[in-house]
Structures are given as structure tokens and as C-alpha cells.
């Protein structure tokens, strides 16, 4: 049984054509900005940055949050458990005005506020992450406390897929189901690659849908670059169960040379590669006009 979240009944189930186009164009901008940040800092986890971009863009458009009042009590919470994919997150925070260009310019420099993994010192960031397998448990604790207090806020957590070899995720999954956390949505950036190669060769995760479902989650599989599907899944909740969205994505998406290449887990593009990407993005925008 799949129900729409009662707190957001007023919202549309699927995106209007205009809204979808807006989000797709925004994602293209965020991708370019992300690569710019990586080049500026001379390093970053670019593959996972670019696979998660559409999910992040859609989520930040959907979540309740107020850049002018980052600690607003009515906000929804987001935890980037795959903290290494920080650059796309920074690009989004910059888009919403949580952080400025000066902060982005400092990325990768001595004493910079923005590190290779996000911390709460960065405006808008809710948790210090980087060590994998922590975000889902943290989000579970947050959602549990919100439930205890009868608050309507939701908690979203984005993990990687290679990250799921960490057993702590499954401890957390077990507990999220035990506590019936309808307010918790766990999104998996299922790009099928980790630093050493294909996830199924390194440590098989499949059947991931079956695993998550058997742990007590409502599970939704989707194309993690399809904004309609993402939005619909973000809306979807089953009373008494946490939700797991398996977002099938392409690692390195948008940077042609990096797409589906494990070697681009952490790498800095050349200016030439960046120029190619900008040309591709220009074509993409033109195609949508």
C-alpha cells in the first residue's frame, strides 16, 4: 500500500512540464558548478558528485527549508552520508545562498571552511560526515526524536551504494523499521561503481531491493536522473514504514569522459575536458529550449 504523505497533500504528485524543465536546467548548472569547484580545489569525488546531482536538485526543491533561516524549526533535514560527494552538495548550498562564492573559492585551501567532507561549520549542513555507514543511523535518531515529539518534519539521507558494505547501515536499517519511521527517507545513489570497480565485484549488494524490503522498508526503484520519478518517490510514504529509494544513476553523469568510469571516483578534469562538458551542457540546454 503506497500513500501520499498527508502533510503535503496540497502538492502535486508529479511535476508540471515547466517545473521539470527548470529542475533539469538547474541540474545542468549545478553539474558545471560542481566541476568548477573540483577544478578550483584540485580534487574531489567527481563521479559520485555527478551521479547524485539530479536527486539533490530535486530534493532541495522539494524539502522544506529556508536559506534565510537555516535553523528554522519547521525544516526538513538532509544528511549526506556519502560525505565524499561534497562538491555537488556545496554547489547546491551555494545555489540557495547558504554559502557564498568566497567559500567555494577557498575549497581545497589551507584552513578552508569547506573540506573534502562536509561539516556543520558550513551553513546549511546538518551533520559531519565522511566516514561511511553513519548517515542512516544518524537520520534514524533524528527521525525517532521527531516522532517522539510528534513533529511533522521529515528526514532525508543519501547514502552511496559501495557504502552499504558497512554493516552499520544494516543495524540502522533494522532500527529504522523497528521504530516505524514514516518520516525517514533513505535514498541510495545506486551508480554501481566504487573506487575499485563494479560494486557487484567488490562486494555484491544485490538483491538490494529485496534486502531493503526485507529489512522493513517501503522500497522504490527508479531512474535517478528522472525528475518526475524522483519527485513522486519523495512524496511517497507508507504509514509505519521508512522509505528506501534506490536511485539508479550514472557515475560521472554529464562529464562524458567520466561517465561510468570507476577511475573517475576521485579525479580532477583538465580544462579541456571541462570545456567539452560545457559544450555538451550548452547543447543540452539548447535542446530543451
Amino acid at each position: 500500500m503506497i500513500e501520499t504523505g498527508t502533510a503535503r497533500k496540497e502538492e502535486i504528485m508529479s511535476l508540471s512540464g515547466e517545473k521539470k524543465k527548470e529542475l533539469m536546467l538547474r541540474a545542468a548548472d549545478i553539474r558545471e558548478k560542481t566541476v568548477e569547484i573540483v577544478i578550483g580545489g584540485n580534487g574531489g569525488h567527481i563521479g559520485g558528485d555527478l551521479s547524485e546531482t539530479d536527486v539533490l536538485v530535486n530534493l532541495f526543491d522539494y524539502m522544506k527549508h529556508d536559506p534565510k533561516n537555516p535553523k528554522w524549526e519547521g525544516r526538513d533535514y538532509f544528511i549526506l552520508s556519502k560525505g565524499h560527494s561534497a562538491e555537488a552538495y556545496y554547489a547546491i548550498l551555494n545555489y540557495y545562498g547558504y554559502i557564498g562564492q568566497e567559500e567555494l573559492d577557498q575549497f581545497g585551501k589551507l584552513g578552508a571552511k569547506l573540506g573534502g567532507h562536509p561539516t556543520k561549520k558550513v551553513n546549511g549542513v546538518e551533520a559531519n560526515t565522511g566516514s561511511l555507514g553513519h548517515g542512516l543511523g544518524l537520520a534514524t535518531g533524528m527521525a525517532l526524536a521527531l516522532k517522539m515529539d510528534g513533529k511533522p518534519n521529515r528526514v532525508f539521507v543519501l547514502t552511496g551504494d559501495g557504502e552499504l558494505a558497512e554493516g552499520s547501515n544494516w543495524e540502522a536499517a533494522m532500527s529504522a523499521a523497528k521504530f516505524g519511521l514514516t518520516n525517514l527517507t533513505w535514498i541510495i545513489d545506486r551508480n554501481h561503481l566504487q573506487i575499485s570497480g563494479n560494486t557487484e565485484d567488490v562486494m555484491p549488494l544485490e538483491n538490494l531491493h529485496g534486502k531493503s524490503e526485507s529489512f522493513g522498508f517501503q522500497v522504490i526503484d527508479l531512474d535517478g536522473h528522472d525528475h518526475d520519478a524522483i519527485r513522486e518517490a519523495l512524496e511517497s510514504r507508507t504509514e509505519g514504514k521508512p522509505t528506501c529509494i534506490i536511485a539508479n544513476t550514472i557515475k560521472g553523469k554529464g562529464l562524458y569522459c567520466a561517465e561510468n568510469q570507476a577511475g573517475w571516483h576521485h579525479k580532477t578534469p583538465t580544462m579541456e575536458q571541462f570545456e567539452h562538458m560545457k559544450e555538451d551542457m550548452a547543447q543540452y540546454r539548447k535542446g530543451m529550449a
Partner: peptide, 8 residues
């Protein structure tokens, strides 16, 4: 970890 989330 869950305790930390609750404290947050």
C-alpha cells in the same frame, strides 16, 4: 549513532 541523531 542513533543517540547522536536524537541529541541533534
Amino acid at each position: 549513532t542513533v543517540s547522536a541523531g536524537m541529541v541533534a
